[in-house]
Design a binder for these strands. Structure first.
Lengths: 242, 242
DNA sequence: CCTTATCGGTGCGATTCCGTACAGTAAAAC
DNA sequence: GTTTTACTGTACGGAATCGCACCGATAAGG
């Protein structure tokens, strides 16, 4: 079962484009493997390609002093990288890289610019995604400022689960700590709490979702607003319904 | 000295529009007083107007469970409210309201839509601001996740100072606590620390900036990236140069 | 198979920040 | 001028999280 359907049908943002628009993009789309840790965008450097994941997860990370980093956005098959390009800019102070390996379709920034220039109708589609992404970042700010590590971890696992096929999240505690901006040891002990409540199971380098609605309950309102927004904007349902 | 120059010249986003574009917006712009606490946008309700402040400060606030709120964006005379409208949507789950009283020019959402529909060139201008605003929110997420209250407070005061005329920030500790998502008492004691270092002076309901570069040093890298981005995008210098 | 690097489990004191509470003081309302 | 409200100062115990450090376990590489 190599690909049950064409790649572009597996990225929701592409799949929900009007057929005519998809056609004009399609010729420029190039399938790419997303290797773990591969850099998609480098801070303050011109962005070369936009990526539409069909599997795996890409993280957008903001950097601060003392090499402090934190995730400000997560991208899976519901979205795309390269929002700066969509907005007519060519760079961003954030970094973007592959967090969970997978596959993507990518398009050169110049090609993308030309295509959306020629098809203004298409822009609306991508602007909706920009709107969603902003709300996601806003709620990351909210979670970072007001939620406990346990809740933020639950939120992150739910967001990752939304974007992956199956229930396994292949990620080390170290990476997770970087995403959340907390200690690695803090992630480890908090994961144990979740495991003890039978919400997840743990193996080396992998977290498996056991009880999704239990995790949603534990996240207690910190998860969900951006997801509802995505549904309003595009009709996608994620895994909320199973 | 009522208005040394027309209102629209005091909002940088308007002032830096190409003259032709400004003309087409101008007829729809209506001067408005920004009363403290006035709601500019209500969560999940259609946005009626977009505001271009010429003085005062508007806050964009995300809400979470248990009525927990936190500021995710700040708008002064460098910017505008209503980014959702710019992106072709009509609402947002965030709230937006006046944090420091002042004046603004506003335009009805429908008028704005018509104007930018007719003048695609203008969109680029506002998209740059959207880009800046996203980066600002991203760095708020970074600050919330990794910086101490002292640094976050310094960052907020610097951002407010950038947007106000003069060195006085008329705000209570209570509001500030809401913005930062920390206890009111925490703000009070932290402000005293800054005062003891002669960086600010305190009066009831007012904070006065004394030593801006000292505050920047204290914020230690948590402040500055979005501001540099704004400069790159628009050439505005804020007060960084005195 | 053996070595080496990565990853995970655990502990401990220090620090930051919270929740709560109460009293004093300045401004606003009457 | 008096009352009322809003704002600020301060305190205290406790919870959450940090920084660091060390060791065992698992996987990867030679």
């Amino acid at each position: 079962m190599a690909q049950p359907q064409p790649f572009h049908r597996q990225n929701h943002l592409l799949a929900s484009l009007p057929p005519a628009d998809l056609t004009s993009l399609e010729t420029h789309l190039e399938p790419m493997e997303l290797g773990i840790r591969h850099a998609i965008e480098i801070a303050n450097k011109p962005i070369k390609h936009l990526y539409f994941p069909v599997s795996g997860i890409i993280s957008v990370v903001a950097s601060g002093p003392r090499n402090h980093k934190i995730e400000v956005g997560i991208i899976g098959k519901e979205g795309m990288s390269g929002i700066s390009i969509v907005l007519g800019d060519d760079r961003t102070p954030n970094e973007t890289y592959v967090q969970v390996a997978g596959f993507a379709l990518r398009i050169a920034a110049d090609d993308f610019r030309h295509v959306i220039h020629a098809a203004p109708s298409m822009r609306h589609h991508f602007f909706q995604y920009v709107q969603f992404f902003m709300i996601q970042t806003a709620h990351t700010a909210l979670a970072n400022g007001r939620a406990k590590v346990e809740e933020r971890l639950a939120r992150w696992l739910l967001m990752a689960h939304d974007r992956l096929d199956g229930d396994e999240i292949p990620l080390t505690h170290e990476f997770l700590a970087l995403m959340l901006g907390v200690r690695r040891a803090g992630v480890t002990t908090t994961l144990h709490v979740l495991e003890a409540r039978a919400l997840i199971s743990l193996e080396r380098g992998r977290i498996t979702m056991i009880d999704r609605s239990g995790l949603e309950a534990l996240a207690d309102g910190i998860y969900g607003v951006p997801e509802a927004e995505y549904r309003r904007l595009t009709g996608w349902r994620g895994k909320t319904q199973g």
